[in-house]
């Protein structure tokens, strides 16, 4: 099946079986390896991407549903996104497996709530698991990105 999508602002046409997971298409066909496979069952968020502005798990999305979709992967997050700086400043990444998904979930969250409360941050990142950081630094990084206050 041939599917046309917009990925990170570029029109892309992919030829692959329609039930292929978006995750495999991104990593295998398109060489976008920022999305990771953790659980493969929708639980961990390592594979998270934005589809039409919403955070979703690419391991649960069949290619057939993506015709005409606008997709953003971690490779498409602009280098000057305050989240990249704040994750760095707050040491919010350790092994880094969860980080692309966390940053995309946080991107969707900040688009909806530019000044999120702690509850909104927890909710926005509720589908992303991290085995390393204990979350505190990640929440701090999202807060910093939203307020512009440097990590203290």
């Amino acid at each position: 099946m041939s599917v046309k999508m917009q990925i990170n602002g570029q029109e892309v046409q992919v030829q692959a079986p329609p039930a292929s997971r978006l995750l495999d298409v991104l990593r295998g066909e398109l060489g976008l390896k920022g999305a990771k496979e953790g659980c493969g069952e929708g639980e961990c968020g390592a594979c998270a991407v934005l589809v039409n502005g919403q955070v979703v798990n690419s391991c649960l999305i069949p290619l057939g549903q993506m015709d005409g979709a606008k997709i953003v992967t971690i490779e498409g997050v602009p280098g000057d996104s305050p989240l990249l700086q704040s994750f760095h400043d707050c040491a919010a990444a350790q092994c880094g497996i969860c980080t692309p998904g966390m940053i995309l979930a946080a991107t969707a969250l900040l688009a909806e709530h530019p000044q999120p409360t702690m509850d909104e941050i927890r909710w926005g990142l509720s589908g992303n698991l991290c085995r390393c950081t204990g979350y505190g630094r990640i929440y701090e990084a999202v807060t910093q990105a939203s307020t512009g206050d440097a990590h203290g």
Partner: peptide, 9 residues
């Protein structure tokens, strides 16, 4: 019902 990315789909 599930976390945020599940509810979006």
């Amino acid at each position: 019902t599930g976390a945020a990315p599940i509810q979006n789909r």
